[in-house]
């Protein structure tokens, strides 16, 4: 059975719809949601409802820093993100907020750890942007495989016992075996706001026996998502970056 991992949807309905459809077309029956459902995009309520529906059907979902930030503003967040979160708060009902509040910081699934940001302190939202942080994360958890998001840039880190960590930029749509002989930290690209230079939406597709991860890229109607961001009065930069993937 394949698993689809979605991270950093950020209120982008068009991208999320396209990724869900792509995963279902591939026969995926199990979904993992790695946080940051809201913030930046124009459809936070729809995205939260969709995530809640998936959770109702058995999906795993963890909390992201933007989801937490709706009710507990993070003073460290940049002005654009803060502006978008203030706008987002007004779009969400008490039920939406209640759902987000109920989400855990991490989930365990057959030896796989799901978190939004990192393994060493999931609620501190520290970024994994190099093998130094990757090693810290891998060493601080028991699980052989950790899956996270947060950076919006797909990346794979791996470590063999007593060896230095290695890093690998996974190629779009090319499966990579995650051999049990070492430990892995897989950073998903972003569904709703890619920042690796490729504007196509990104999600992780995990197949088992043997375990293989593919960073699937899904082209979607970014023009429409950008138009809605502008129509909602959100910062123009949030619309622009969807078209460049930066």
């Amino acid at each position: 059975m394949s698993i689809a991992l979605f991270s950093d949807v950020h209120g982008n309905r068009e991208a999320f719809t396209a990724c869900l459809a792509d995963a279902r077309r591939r026969g995926v029956a199990r979904f993992v949601l790695l946080g940051d459902y809201v913030g930046y995009g124009a459809d936070p309520a729809w995205v939260v409802e969709t995530v809640a529906e998936l959770v109702g059907q058995g999906a795993f979902a963890v909390l992201g820093n933007h989801d937490a930030g709706v009710e507990t503003p993070d003073p460290g967040m940049n002005p654009v993100a803060t502006f978008a979160l203030n706008w987002t708060r007004e779009q969400l009902s008490p039920a939406h907020l209640g759902f987000l509040r109920s989400l855990p910081l991490s989930s365990l699934d057959e030896g796989r750890l799901y978190v939004h940001a990192n393994g060493w302190a999931p609620g501190d939202w520290g970024y994994v942007t190099s093998s130094v942080e990757a090693e810290r994360s891998i060493r601080s958890v028991q699980q052989r495989w950790t899956f996270c998001g947060h950076t919006h840039v797909p990346m794979l880190y791996h470590m063999a016992p007593h060896r230095p960590p290695g890093e690998f930029e996974p190629l779009p749509n090319k499966p990579v075996p995650l051999a049990a002989s070492r430990r892995w930290l897989a950073v998903m690209g972003s569904v709703g706001q890619p920042r690796d230079g490729n504007p196509a939406a990104c999600y992780g597709l995990l197949r088992r026996d043997p375990l293989e991860l593919t960073m699937v890229r899904v082209p979607y109607d970014a023009d429409e998502a950008a138009r809605k961001i502008l129509a909602a009065g959100l910062p123009e930069s949030l619309a622009r970056r969807l078209k460049t993937g930066r």
Partner: peptide, 10 residues
Amino acid sequence: DELPDLLAEE
């Protein structure tokens, strides 16, 4: 060339 080089760090 599409997979991690496990020997790169060795």
